[in-house]
Design a protein around this nucleic acid. Sequence first.
DNA 1: TTTCACTTTAGAATAATTATAAACTATAAA
DNA 2: TTTATAGTTTATAATTATTCTAAAGTGAAA
Lengths: 135, 135
Amino acid sequence: MKKIDILKKLRSSGLRPTKQRVEIAKFLFEREKTFHFTVESLNKLLTKKSASKIALATIYNTVHAFKTAGHLSEVEVRGNKTYFDTNVSNHHHFYDSDTSELIDIDSNDIIIQKIPKAPNGKKIKNVEVFINLIN
Amino acid sequence: MKKIDILKKLRSSGLRPTKQRVEIAKFLFEREKTFHFTVESLNKLLTKKSASKIALATIYNTVHAFKTAGHLSEVEVRGNKTYFDTNVSNHHHFYDSDTSELIDIDSNDIIIQKIPKAPNGKKIKNVEVFINLIN
DNA sequence: TTTCACTTTAGAATAATTATAAACTATAAA
DNA sequence: TTTATAGTTTATAATTATTCTAAAGTGAAA
Ligand SMILES: [Mn+2]
Ligand SMILES: [Mn+2]
Ligand SMILES: [Zn+2]
Ligand SMILES: [Zn+2]
């Protein structure tokens, strides 16, 4: 994904391409592989990488704006930090509690044969599988 | 589960059956169905139910002691609160984000046909399935 | 009974996140 | 181009969940 696409991506979702947003978006979206992060880890990586310092509040604002726009998803893992994911398609995860690392599993790599029906009046929105790892 | 069993349960895991622990244990374990809760919700329910007030720190201490003893498990759900579960066997969950409610799914009610192999050097500890619900 | 390690407790401390409100800026209109 | 303004950033305060601390209290072994 090139810079022009980043600008398009932001503009098309009603987000002004500010210096900060472009920098964060380039960091998050100009990569081959899926990226899982917390706001804290993203902040550290951005501080290390770039010259200009972005306020922590801006990173929170931006990550939430990207999530609302559908450019990031939120993943639930153990712990009290919120994890975000550049993979917004339906997929599953390995979770290595040793390193607190998430690894994507393609939706097609897990097949569920039997599943209970949803309770009274509710519908199934989606199914998420977590495979917890140990050494 | 009767009071004598509660005392046995506590003693057998090296926990002195103090007034507070017995009260919390009775509240948590003397019920037919599985119970999912946060420390905050447990605190509210205990305050409402009982005459004697238990300090919040004690509820945190006790819940963690019970978890360490294997009498409670921790469930990961969306949000930044920690959820606990009186069901300590291997099982899955429906999650109703509308009510923030967890519902147990028996391990046998979900059959996974295809699963990817664990990454290099890692082993699969367990597989957790979350079925997210909508109205 | 006495003793003491274990436990409870109030309050302080920490960690993650959100709110506030003033300064700044992208961009549409003039 | 300037100007106007709604959107954005930022430092800092506030909030929320949880853990820490250290003093007072207590269960149970001796
Ligand atoms: Mn979490
Ligand atoms: Mn959680
Ligand atoms: Zn992912
Ligand atoms: Zn459960």
